[in-house]
Design a protein around this nucleic acid. Structure first.
Lengths: 154, 154
DNA sequence: ACGCTGGATTTAGAATCCGAACTCTTTCAA
DNA sequence: TTGAAAGAGTTCGGATTCTAAATCCAGCGT
């Protein structure tokens, strides 16, 4: 079934791979859920907390990490008649994770959705048919998974 | 900068979302690295361990989770003159995560690669130019990020 | 019988997680 | 002027989970 030939080691040690550095940042339960919420427009501490139901200590720590890493920007907002408060807004760096989050969602729809239609799907503006995360070449044409080749630098 | 309008909650509670179920499985440091190695062809316990440098207890537990979830299949291999051993081979379910791993890698290349060219890149078979993660419509044509709309079921 | 090898569990200590309560500051209302 | 409310955290034990290292176990070759 698997077309992947046996290997004892990967061609690139994980710690040299940018994937590992990425996982350092987003590779945990809460962080990905925080980013999901942020992509839907959630920005405030208590809103994140109500959304995730995670301990406030953990949320506070994760937000700090995401700000330090540059995925979130800490700004100040002020509702008239209320005191100024911080809000956590996605940076371009954070927004660019959107295809991956949607890709993960769609993977879950396919493999974990128990026959039910997915609760949320994505379309092009003004169209009805669904879009999906995929790979494209430099001209914007889809590259199917079996056409993908890895190329080592060297 | 952010075009995302403020929201107090996401339109779908995380626990109903297939993304959350996905994150339950792959949302930790080691699991994603295990899948990375598996996609490169690593299959055996000690090879995974040497590759990741993670505690054997953790590896053993994670492999069990991935087998139970259906991403890995536990098979038996036998080198003549040695005893039979289990090996952990990606199922179709596991292999279909490859685009996401590649997407994460490329995200890291862009945002975390310190000016260096990425150690590994991806192309279409027989081509030289790089591919990238994006969205496509049902005909395989790219949809730009600002054209994406989320549609709720109901 | 003995050691080797690869897969996996045991153990003890460190780090992390969790929930609940508490702090701090400004604003509004009595 | 006193006090309650709101939002964003921090503090605090106790429960999990992680880590590293040692150990166990089964079959193979000698």
């Amino acid at each position: 079934m698997s077309q992947i030939p046996l290997a004892r080691r990967s061609p690139i040690p994980p710690e040299n791979c940018n994937l590992a550095r990425t996982i350092e940042i987003v590779g945990d339960r809460w962080t990905l859920l925080i980013l999901r919420a942020a992509l839907y427009g959630v920005r405030r501490f208590d809103d994140f907390q109500a959304e995730l139901g995670c301990p406030r200590t953990v949320l506070s720590g994760r937000l700090k990490i995401l700000v330090d890493a540059g995925l979130l920007t800490r700004k100040t907002y002020k509702v008239p008649g209320k005191r100024a408060r911080p809000e956590y807004v996605l940076s371009a760096m954070g927004i660019s994770l959107r295809p991956i989050l949607i890709g993960l969602t769609q993977w879950g729809d396919v493999w974990l959705g128990k026959g039910e239609p997915p609760p949320i799907s994505f379309t092009r503006t003004g169209s009805k048919s669904a879009i999906r995360a995929a790979f494209v070449d430099h001209e914007g044409r889809e590259v199917r998974p079996d056409q993908i080749r890895a190329v080592l630098r060297g």
